[in-house]
Design a protein around this nucleic acid. Structure first.
Ligand code: MN
Ligand code: MN
Ligand code: ZN
Ligand code: ZN
Lengths: 132, 132
DNA sequence: GTCTACTTTATAATGATTCTAAAAAGGTGT
DNA sequence: ACACCTTTTTAGAATCATTATAAAGTAGAC
């Protein structure tokens, strides 16, 4: 299994559950956006196994901390995650509640002119809200 | 009271509670960012009165729908609101959990090149995360 | 003042997320 | 394989922001 090394190198034991979650998250050709509940359903559907909700939360947070997942800043009652960890941006369709990737090239270069003393810029994220 | 007309024109009855909330939200020279709990404390401190939490939620959402407040897209366990309803952006200081305004002029013009069929752009918001 | 629709309020319900602590599993050394 | 220790998983409970409920209060119209 190709994820064993990845997990070991991150200091995470390659457990059965983590490997299964890796498979669901990282095996698909396309990246995607998901909530914890989306992911739980996807795991049940794709590998027909039950992983406890606590483990899914734990694993997603562990992967986020290792940089294998990103949170998407958006106002929703659930947290959205992204398997696309490259620098990129999002459309948010307000009517359908759907997120769509906006590549860096789809948005001009962004030049933040204001500086805050003693602080470094960690990320620049653009959210473009869409309506019908 | 200068907010009576504003509320009437919005189809909101100018109740005592709404006028008091207007005073706390809109009387200060500077705009600010807040959570519902921030606002509740601010009301208690500034006008020494208790307004029920449900009313604060209701009023904030009513004002948001009328365009007198904006939600700030950010990942937090609480929703952040902004009394600055102009088009603008935010720094988010990850260490201190603090939001700082970034005026449009502090960020270059943003040109979204990708189009989504049948959808209009409603807003473009930039979140710049800061770390020490 | 009366009437009605809107508003406030205390309180309960909801639901996402986190916590707990006991059982299970990984990894190391023997 | 076994013992040992640490990490992980898990079911279930706890937390807490937010929303719903429904009864009492209020604003505005007549
Ligand atoms: Mn997280
Ligand atoms: Mn709202
Ligand atoms: Zn994305
Ligand atoms: Zn702001």
């Amino acid at each position: 299994m190709k994820y064993i090394e990845k997990l070991r190198n991150s200091g995470l034991r390659p457990t059965k559950q983590r490997l299964q979650i890796c498979q669901v998250l990282f095996n698909s050709k396309k990246t995607f956006h998901f909530t914890i509940n989306d992911l739980k359903k996807k795991i049940e559907k794709e590998i027909n196994i039950n992983i406890s909700l606590a483990t899914i939360y734990n694993t997603v947070h562990a992967f986020e901390n290792k940089g294998y997942l990103k949170q998407i800043p958006i106002n929703s009652n659930q947290t959205y995650f992204d398997t696309n960890v490259s620098d990129h941006h999002h459309f948010y369709d307000l009517n359908e509640g759907r997120l769509i990737d906006l590549e860096n090239s789809d948005v001009g270069p962004i030049n933040i002119k204001k500086k805050i003393n003693g602080k470094k810029i960690k990320s620049v994220e653009v959210l473009v809200k869409l309506e019908a």
